[in-house]
Amino acid sequence: MRRLVVALCVLLFCLTITNSTAIARDVLRFGVITLNHPLVMYRHYLPFTDYLAKRLGIEIELVLAADYQGIVDAMAEERVDIALLAGVSYLKVQETTATRLICAVRSQEGTPTSRSAIVVRADRQDIRSLHELKGHSFAFGSKDSTSSYLGPLGYLVKHGITPEDFSHWQNFRTHDAVIRALLRGKVDAGAVSKEALAKFPAESLKVLAITPQLPGFVLVSTANVPEALHARLQTLLLNLNYQDPELASSLERWSPMLRAGFTGVDESHYAPVQKLMQELEAQGFYGDKR
């Protein structure tokens, strides 16, 4: 009798675990980095997740990570199932978490890449070229940002300008914070993505340089997402029908970053980012040697 009771308990435990897993798979947790006010993030991403949920027939929960490291931790700790990542964050996730690429986000130029802008306030007549940045203050975005730190830093170093050439330099949490600091005169120059720059009046800022393309954002899933669901999501995003009235109605409410659509990429997509990181680390301008 005791053996029967133990066997029934073990069976019940296994059924509970199986059922819990099935319930968990009924909700797909989608993680994004909070780069704006949380209300803005919800307004930009809930229409996207609602559209996916309806098409996939599964509930999708939007999870906002506080910062770049937050999304890396959320994936490692299995608090999200899929995530929107770029450059440095993607490479850091790969070190801790088994992931599968879903697709890349197309930029407004139609490529799975992004460019950065090095800018000053429009009324700064004393700064008209990159080399006139020397001796002035400079603002980058987060140290984990590809398009407002790694990419622009690499571009400046390539053109003979190192952080030591600035009177002082600092990192801000977001691209928008960099631009606001510029407009308020707190810093003389800064680096942001072209997408962030487009949100501010063109006449208020002067562009000194546009960097070469680097890989942009990608969507990835963790190993917890069933392969069949991963494949359905990938197929859905890569085959969006822009003539569909339902999609058109939803699309205009998505984050501007997502409206140009998606394209396929493989694991080699972020090789240029890895290479740039290694080059700057070897020169002592990035990572632990910085």
Results as ranks from 00 to 15, higher is better:
Ile102Ser: 04
Thr211Ile: 00
Thr111Gly: 08
Ser107Val: 00
Thr21Gln: 15
Ala223Gly: 11
Tyr286Ser: 02
Glu246Phe: 00
Leu208Gly: 11
Ile33Gly: 11
Val120Pro: 02
Arg259Phe: 04
Lys186Cys: 15
Ala76Gly: 11
Phe138Glu: 10
Leu52Tyr: 03
Lys158Gln: 05
Gly57Gln: 10
Gln125His: 13
Ala271Phe: 11
Asp288Ile: 12
Ala98Leu: 08
Leu39Val: 11
Leu153Thr: 09
Asp176Gln: 02
Thr16Gly: 09
Val273Asn: 03
Gln108Ile: 14
Val32Cys: 04
Ala74Asp: 14
Glu267Ile: 06
Leu247Asn: 01
Ala202Ile: 06
Asp126Gln: 03
Thr97Gly: 12
Thr235Ser: 15
Leu28Trp: 02
Phe140Asp: 05
Glu281Pro: 10
Asp67Glu: 07
Arg128Lys: 11
Arg106Phe: 11
Asn241Arg: 12
Val220Lys: 07
Lys199Trp: 08
His131Tyr: 01
Ala53Leu: 14
Arg290Lys: 11
Arg115Ser: 14
Ala122Trp: 08
Ala248Trp: 02
Arg121His: 14
Ala181Gly: 03
Leu276Arg: 00
Pro215Thr: 01
Arg180Tyr: 06
Leu208Arg: 01
Glu95Met: 03
Gln234Gly: 15
Leu150Ile: 09
Lys158Tyr: 03
Lys275Gly: 04
Ala76Arg: 07
Ser145Met: 10
Leu219Pro: 10
Thr99Leu: 05
Ser268Lys: 06
Ala22Asn: 14
Ala53Thr: 06
Gly154Asn: 09
Leu8Gly: 09
Glu267Ser: 11
Leu46Glu: 11
Leu101Glu: 04
Phe30Asp: 14
Pro47Ile: 00
Arg253Glu: 13
Ala231Cys: 15
Glu195Ala: 13
Thr235Pro: 12
Ile118Phe: 01
Arg2Asn: 15
Leu219Tyr: 09
Gly264His: 13
Ala83Asp: 03
His168Thr: 10
Val218Thr: 06
Leu8Phe: 03
Arg25His: 13
Gln69Pro: 14
Leu258Asn: 08
Leu56Gly: 13
Arg253Val: 05
Ser193Gly: 10
Lys206Gln: 15
Leu156Cys: 07
Thr263His: 08
Leu84Gly: 02
Ala181Asp: 07
His230Ala: 10
Leu214Phe: 03
Ile127Ala: 15
His175Asp: 08
His44Val: 10
Arg79Cys: 07
Glu59Asp: 14
Ile60Val: 10
Lys158Arg: 05
Gln278Leu: 03
Ile127Trp: 13
Ala260Met: 14
His269Gln: 03
Leu237Gln: 02
Ile161Arg: 00
Leu11Gln: 04
Asp123Ile: 01
Leu280His: 01
Glu246Asp: 10
Asp188Arg: 01
Ser137Pro: 01
Glu164Asn: 09
Val220Gly: 09
Leu133Ile: 00
Arg124Asn: 13
Leu237Ser: 07
Arg79Ala: 15
Tyr42Ser: 13
Asp26Thr: 05
Thr111Ser: 13
Arg3Glu: 15
Leu236Val: 11
Met257Phe: 15
Cys103Leu: 06
Arg55Gly: 09
Ile60Leu: 05
Ala86Ile: 15
Thr34Gly: 04
Arg259Ala: 02
Ser221Asp: 11
Ser148Asn: 04
Ala228Thr: 11
Ser147Cys: 13
Val157Arg: 05
Ile17Ala: 07
Leu62Gln: 05
Gly57Leu: 10
Val225Glu: 12
Leu91Tyr: 00
Ala24Gly: 07
Arg29Val: 12
Pro47Leu: 03
Val40Tyr: 01
Arg290Phe: 10
Leu214Met: 12
Gln125Thr: 13
Val10His: 00
Gln283Glu: 12
Ile127Met: 05
His37Pro: 01
